[in-house]
């Protein structure tokens, strides 16, 4: 009863989300099954990567500004936050976060008579996303902070000369320039964040109903076939594709950020890791 590849894709294409065949393949492993299931797991890597990046971007901006602030009440907490998250391995952050989250009362927290359910926080989709969000925010904040410090003095002086001040000076002069300068390094951060998502099920959060990411399924196959040379390179292949896609998307944004510059000055995106994980 060998399944055709199309049937395999129908059965396992969305397995990582809990749809399709409930039991994972147990014998007669085919290459098609490898590619389908590992590809299915990649959905989670994309989910973690995209959402953490999206939320992290906003927090990173706030943190970068706080770190550049004069008031120590803003600056110190931001500096500490960035130091702790950049200074420790993500893997330990996952572990400690998980340990903290399981301490929340299972029955839920009672706030003003309304019971808030807490059990979902230990699930990877929420807990790991939260850690990745904080982690990438810290790394990106450092990048943006560095970029903010290197905004050309002339730009700011020109803004002053035109009478552009306060919020509008920030929004129209400082912030776009900061993004433009920090963008190549931010692209690297994005790549590394996507790579870091493979740690979620590997050493952080438990896999629920055998729903995991690309590495989880690769591990499953390596475990069943006792052959690591097929599943792990497949994960590598998927990630190279993902990285290329990411570089392309960030390149497009980079072009837009630099569109006002004369074409010979427009720096092509240079993948020089300024600040990477």
């Amino acid at each position: 009863m060998a399944m055709s590849c199309l049937e395999t894709i129908q059965a396992y294409g969305l397995r990582s989300l809990g749809y399709g065949e409930r039991l994972l393949p147990r014998d007669d492993f085919t290459l098609c099954q490898h590619f389908t299931l590992i590809g299915s797991g990649l959905i989670w890597n994309v989910y973690f990567g995209v959402l953490a990046l999206l939320f992290g971007f906003f927090l990173a901006n706030a943190l970068a500004l706080a770190k550049a602030a004069h008031s120590p009440w803003l600056r110190k907490p931001a500096e500490w936050f960035i130091f702790v998250f950049r200074g420790s391995p993500l893997f330990i952050q996952f572990f400690l976060a998980y340990e903290l989250l399981v301490l929340l009362p299972k029955a839920g927290i009672n706030v003003l008579g309304i019971t808030i359910d807490t059990s979902w926080t230990t699930r990877a989709w929420a807990g790991a996303l939260f850690v990745l969000f904080l982690n990438t925010a810290a790394y990106s904040a450092e990048i943006f902070h560095g970029a903010l410090k290197s905004v050309p003095k002339g730009d700011v002086e020109a803004a002053d000369a035109y009478g552009i001040t306060g919020w509008s000076r920030f929004r129209r002069i400082l912030w776009p320039t900061m993004l433009r300068l920090g963008w190549p390094a931010y692209t690297n951060e994005a790549i590394f964040l996507f790579h870091a998502t493979t740690l979620v099920f590997f050493s952080g959060f438990p896999a629920f109903q055998q729903r995991g990411d690309a590495l989880y399924y690769a591990n499953y196959f390596a475990d069943k076939t006792f052959n690591p040379f097929i599943p792990y390179p497949i994960v590598g292949f998927y990630f190279i594709c993902l990285t290329l896609l990411l570089i392309w998307v960030f390149g497009l944004i980079n072009r837009r950020l630099n569109r006002h510059l004369p074409s010979n000055l427009r720096g092509r995106i240079r993948l020089r890791p300024q600040l990477i994980r």
């Binding site: 039991l23 994972l24 050493s203 438990p206 629920f208 109903q209 055998q210």
Partner: peptide, 21 residues
């Protein structure tokens, strides 16, 4: 534990399997 015969058994038993390293 991931990769044990017990994990395989739970996956087939109808219960929800939660795997740890």
């Amino acid at each position: 534990q991931t990769g044990t015969i017990q994990a395989g058994y739970v996956a087939e038993s109808g219960a929800t399997l939660l795997e740890f390293a």
